[in-house]
Design a protein around this nucleic acid. Structure first.
Lengths: 330, 330
DNA sequence: CACAACGCTGCACAGCTGTGCAGTGGCACG
DNA sequence: CGTGCCACTGCACAGCTGTGCAGCGTTGTG
């Protein structure tokens, strides 16, 4: 009572209920042998004291954790936040806990701190996955789930989940070509995640196949404001009639700046297409045509990977992408 | 090597380096007594094996955790996701870990599972804070930080952080009155957080003082779509000239639906004002006039509360609110 | 009534760390 | 050379849980 109160332990409950500590442990273990009367008395004492079994000690003993590390940067991004919402809800429903790490300004050393908590699995949402971290996970026997990233070195226990970036880039190109665009640009942020580069490269390749020149913008973080800046720079010279934002957040920055600040009409003067299909892209204020990577499918695949037993063979799941037709492309 | 690999322990490192386990522990404890040569050898062995000190056992021993529980629902909400981004980055910078719990469909029993991990602090972002949980935290000596919620029962160790909801509601009312509105509505979701109700009630009180009738919409979750539905219902009958969305997400649903679907011009025919100042509200596509609760101030206050020593007296911090003038009110 | 079976309980240990305490060796100083 | 000091090291314990094993009393059966 004086100063800092300690956490209630099983020994406290045992003392109060007049039984041994083992009995308390058994009372909280389904299927263990305890008499009904003892269990009742123990549960009552636990309730009174506010006892909860200590998962730290439990995990320590069982060498089996319910902690899942989730690593991601740019959590304010509309698509990523939706993804995190769905993922955390799913983990919760499975009785797993979500240890969140914001990787915005963290190197491999910081990420490694997740392992200090003996997470059973590490889910990497975005940002770079340093090889150090992958090696560290491997040598500690922790499973990894890599979303939209390149395959790790051979022999590491990592489930891959990849939306078909190349196909998405191609779809975007085809759509702009169908709209009659003849002078286009692709906006990719300065932080070159492999998935984003793939999208851009597939887009450029398809355009090249049709002999259409592509300007590439690759500066700044993956943020809305970067899209705004790109629009200002790219549209300063006339002629450009199509822009592919490699992320919805970027594309929306382009779209809004072109419309409100630069006086372009979209999709009249200019076509804009994005990638992700974040909820905000469907709002009446945007109606952004975009390449959807189904959030449901992505989440389901992630949870499936987390559910997989620790010794299962690594898998690779592909998430199909589809064109979502709205109102930002002619 | 066969099947599931165990986590590397300090004993493994000790064996490899040819020292006692204590030496390994000391090598990783700043300020502890180890000879330079031993430390060097130990660090090398640890590096080779991929050893990391087990925070679970460490916490268990020290009765001092670096885990901060963060509870929130509706993580896809533009303001909340920005808040979570800033908060998790701040915790990370302080060397604390963020145990995230999505409280969307969880009762007190689920929330209580956070305590199983002996979190040092629980931060409640939104959703209802059941008294059970507060009692449980108290009896386990875990500190709480309550954001935009009513004060807990006396004697519980909880830091309060409250934006001035009443002042915000009043500001919104004053602004609509200044715009010449004479027939207004307030949109509040069905889930009645105390903060949201306070905002609405202050708004209604101020309007009543000027003899202006207020229609109240209180159905559905706190989502964009709820704002859309509210707009459709409220604007079916003519006459309404001002709407206060108790959350930016709600207000944006109203704004977009009024403009794109119902053919109203905002701020010509109709004035719309929100509350939060989420990043997306400032986008050129919306330019929503709103009541800002400074994200910086909120985050700083939260982190200050987390930093406070466990035995410090509970505090109550007020976050000022300000009117952000944009382009959705006449 | 004797004995086996059975349900329940407590002891003791493992799981991994940090640290107080004692012990060891080396070194400086008188 | 003797003695004290100092740096370093290892032992042992605490912190909290789950569980194998043995012991206990009770009950049922021949």
């Amino acid at each position: 009572m004086s100063g800092r109160r300690r956490f209630v332990s099983a020994a406290d409950v045992a003392r109060r209920a007049g039984v041994s500590r083992s009995a308390v442990s058994r009372a909280f273990t389904p299927g263990a042998q305890v008499s009904a009367t003892a269990r009742e008395r123990i549960l009552a004492a636990a309730e009174e004291l506010g006892y909860r079994v200590n998962r730290l000690a439990q995990t320590l003993h069982q060498a089996r954790s319910d902690l899942v590390g989730v690593v991601g940067g740019n959590l304010g991004n509309p698509y990523i936040s939706a993804q995190l919402d769905a993922l955390s809800a799913g983990l919760h429903a499975r009785g797993l806990q979500c240890l969140l790490l914001n990787s915005a300004q963290g190197g491999a050393a910081d990420l490694a701190r997740l392992l200090d908590y003996r997470v059973r699995t590490v889910v990497l949402l975005s940002g770079a996955a340093p090889d150090d971290l992958i090696r560290l996970c491997a040598s500690n026997g922790a499973r990894m789930v890599l979303i939209n990233r390149p395959a790790p070195p051979k022999g590491t226990l990592a489930d891959l989940i990849q939306a078909d970036s190349a196909q998405g880039g191609r779809l975007a190109a085809e759509r702009l070509i169908a709209a009659g665009c003849g002078n286009v640009a692709v906006v990719i942020s300065g932080s070159r995640t492999s998935a984003k580069t793939e999208r851009a490269e597939a887009f450029e390749a398809e355009m090249a196949r049709h002999g259409i020149p592509v300007t590439r913008w690759a500066e700044g973080p993956n943020r809305y404001e970067t899209g705004c800046a790109a629009a200002r720079a790219l549209l300063a010279r006339p002629g450009l009639d199509g822009i592919f934002g490699v992320t919805d957040e970027l594309a929306l920055g382009v779209l809004n700046t072109a419309r409100a600040e630069l006086g372009r009409t979209v999709p009249g003067d200019l076509s804009v297409i994005g990638f992700d299909d974040a909820p905000v892209s469907g709002w009446a204020s945007h109606r952004l045509t975009t390449i959807r990577q189904s959030l449901d499918a992505l989440t389901r695949a992630t949870l499936d990977a987390v559910d997989r037993p620790a010794e299962a063979a690594p898998t690779c799941e592909h998430i199909p992408v589809t064109l979502v037709e709205r109102n930002s492309v002619a």
